[in-house]
């Protein structure tokens, strides 16, 4: 068996790291295309076509990161998978319904008569919204350690709006990067609005987070590491502030630096994710199940690791390569 020398603990850490990578990449990548869906305007037809064109080549692959994340949870931590998804059965169902609706609308809208296009557009927008709200809600409940009381529900609702704002924010930044003219101007407006809501959301979620778990509060407020850790939220707000300034200045910059808002948004995602990661390590269900509690048979994980080591770098490489092929402003909507 390859990787014989790796202990179960090491495997657990590797797989939780991979799971984290998959979730983070999902949040960023499907995040922006879900965000574009949430921002979908009800009327302006050219906006809609251009927005769809901006995410057309990517969304399929973006969504695959969710399959990988759920797959890794299932493979490496089967107990956590069933505990999380059975507790979150209904929100997970709503999320899947949302994902189905938006995924198919995307294709149907391009192939049906004009009169029916509207209906599929509506499905696309509200499917995206249903997905982001459900994902935020699920994140919230997961953070509480799968509690279902009123306090946890309230927190989860807040998280639902926070995640939706975050996705809409990164979606707007994506549109700034990929579009021009009127739509880009609109995207600047959206980005600024979402930035405000997101900043408020991050503050609220961070503080409530401290009330949920004893050990998390100790880690952040009382341990010597806490001061270093405090740099993360500080950096996060620094970046958001910078992003706000950039959003003010960019429209007059004559097309330079349009990648900046998206890059900053991406960093904000990474920082928020890191804060979560540090807070809850070594738990896969906060306060309930640790990595080692839920880990499946190490030999099976070693077998899969061979594939992971070979294939994941390839996936990352060809993903970057495809993004480079389609770099620059997106073309008008056309299928071939």
């Amino acid at each position: 068996m390859p990787f014989e020398s790796l202990s179960a603990e090491a495997l657990g850490n590797i797989y939780v790291g991979l799971l984290g990578l998959a979730v983070l990449l999902y949040a960023i990548l499907d995040g922006y295309d879900l965000g574009v869906g949430v921002l979908f305007p009800p009327r302006n037809e050219t906006f809609k076509d251009d927005m769809v064109a901006s995410i057309g080549p990517y969304w399929d692959a973006n969504e695959t990161w969710l399959v990988l994340a759920v797959g890794l949870l299932l493979i490496a931590f089967p107990q956590a998978h069933s505990a999380i998804l059975q507790t979150l059965y209904l929100p997970a169902t709503f999320m899947l319904i949302g994902l189905i609706l938006r995924g198919v609308s995307f294709d149907f809208r391009a192939k049906v008569p004009q009169t029916k296009k509207r209906k599929w557009d509506t499905c696309f927008k509200y499917g995206s919204l249903l997905t982001t709200l459900s994902q935020g809600y699920m994140l919230g409940i997961w953070v509480t350690g799968l509690r279902t009381d009123w306090y946890a529900q309230g927190f989860a609702l807040l998280a639902a709006f926070g995640v939706t704002a975050a996705y809409a924010f990164i979606g707007a930044c994506w549109l700034i990067l990929k579009t021009e003219g009127e739509l880009q101007a609109k995207a600047f407006y959206w980005a600024k609005r979402c930035l405000m809501i997101l900043a408020g959301g991050i503050i609220a979620v961070s503080f409530i987070n401290l009330t949920l778990h004893e050990n998390v509060r100790e880690l952040w407020l009382e341990s010597p590491l806490g001061l270093v850790l405090m740099l993360i939220p500080l950096a996060c707000f620094g970046l958001l502030l910078l992003c706000g300034i950039v959003l003010q200045k960019l429209p007059k910059a004559g097309g330079r630096g349009e990648w900046l808002p998206f890059a900053l948004a991406l960093l904000v995602f990474v920082l928020c994710f890191t804060a979560f990661g540090i807070s809850y390590y070594p738990y896969v269900v906060p306060g309930k199940l640790t990595i080692m509690d839920a880990l499946s048979d190490p030999d099976s994980l070693r077998f899969l690791l061979v594939g992971v080591v070979v294939v994941v770098p390839c996936i990352l490489l060809y993903t970057v390569w495809v993004y480079r092929i389609f770099a620059g402003k997106s073309e008008k909507l056309a299928y071939y």
């Binding site: 399929d60 890794l72 089967p78 099976s300 294939v311």
Partner: peptide, 28 residues
Amino acid sequence: GNVAGPLLGYEVLTAFFLEATFLGIMLF
């Protein structure tokens, strides 16, 4: 899961990403 998991994992890793990513090139 110790048998089913890795087989599903290999499917996602070797097939799903390949299809979905290259589909973008194929279509657009």
